[in-house]
Nucleic acid binder design. Structure first.
Lengths: 198, 198
DNA sequence: ACCTTGTGCGGAGCCAGCCTCCGTTTTATG
DNA sequence: CATAAAACGGAGGCTGGCTCCGCACAAGGT
């Protein structure tokens, strides 16, 4: 009857240690080698066996989602900053940029994210974050549309696609920052309403 | 002194047969499984050993480039059709669409194409086709710009990026045709000149 | 028809990475 | 300190990429 209610035992100490070590190692490897990094190497660097890794994170996506959790929280924080801005168009613009940076956390990240966004597979731990992003994008977009600053024909999902594909290009490492900037401008001109002040 | 000049021998017959069988099998597998298809399976289906496959095509990219040759010729043919059109803007639009379809030949194709476009690596057999596409895009774009139908700030490479990223999204299979259509429209609005008839 | 030559064939074999299963170790608790 | 549950970790099966070398067979001469 004491402590954690129905759970008879307290959780073991090493499980937390291992989990933390795995996450740290995974982040390093994903940063260096992209989302396709060798999971065996991650386990070795964390000082655990492959079995332990797979017990904690049954799939690559699960590990990815866990590592991404930190970034996700950063994104939420940035959302608060963005909400302070006056101009709806500027809010949308900065939100898109923030989302793109989130997608660019690791090279190759857009691929599994798109796969998760596809089939609403509830087993895929990346599905939830994705849905949230799309919904948020739609909110910012609608605000801009009401202010007459974005075309009515555009949908939130379209801008999600635009942001993730820009991140994909960025992740291939084949393109300089200048070209990426022009591409972002092109997309922005694409969703902005034509008859516009500024 | 007859035939192929300095070459003493005529090329063997089985070489051509094997090459053709490999290309046919590779096309089938790339179509079904994307560019990451198992090369061993390709060799087996072609009725040859792995060694033979790798002698004909030392890398996956080489095989891909050879299979793509057919599509590349289709694209050249389409270019001739497009050149017939009156409107420079329409020519650009249709060229971009043709290029996107070329990129969508196999699932996952944009990835190695971008890698080839990156470093001008002369060893990569996909580099040449890519450069050609970018140059052609630039030509069509310049014509449209001279006709006042495209923004002067846009570059050919930007539209190449837009097309290949659209193809990437399409290849993930995560998006319906309707959303893709809206994305294309968005991009088109992005590069078109604002003060425009129609 | 048969030999000679050398080009091309093909599979055995090695490596890397994914993932699982189970005997062993570690940990919380009485 | 004893005990049982929980977690560990590595051996091992599997797939796929890629190489290397002995062998077979097609081309060309006699």
């Amino acid at each position: 009857m004491s402590g954690k209610g129905q759970q008879g035992r307290r959780p073991r100490a090493d499980v937390q240690r291992n989990r933390a070590a795995l996450l740290a190692a995974a982040q390093r490897h994903f940063l260096r080698d992209g989302v396709g990094a060798s999971l065996e190497a991650v386990a070795k660097e964390a000082g655990v066996g492959p079995g332990t890794l797979y017990r904690h994170f049954p799939t690559r996506e699960a590990l990815l989602a866990a590592v991404l959790q930190t970034r996700s929280e950063e994104l939420v924080a940035r959302r608060a900053d963005i909400a302070q801005l006056d101009d709806a168009s500027e809010r949308l613009r900065q939100w898109l940029r923030a989302m793109e940076e989130y997608f660019s956390a690791f090279s190759g990240l857009p691929e599994p994210l798109m796969a998760a966004a596809r089939a609403q597979d509830p087993d895929n731990p990346l599905t939830l974050p994705c849905d949230d992003l799309i919904t948020t994008t739609d909110e910012y977009l609608r605000a801009a549309q009401c202010a007459g600053q974005a075309r009515p024909s555009v949908k939130g999902y379209d801008l999600f696609l635009a942001a993730i594909s820009t991140a994909w290009i960025s992740g291939t490492g084949a393109t300089d920052e200048e070209s990426l900037g022009r591409l972002r401008t092109l997309i922005e001109s694409g969703y902005r309403e034509r008859s516009d002040e500024e």
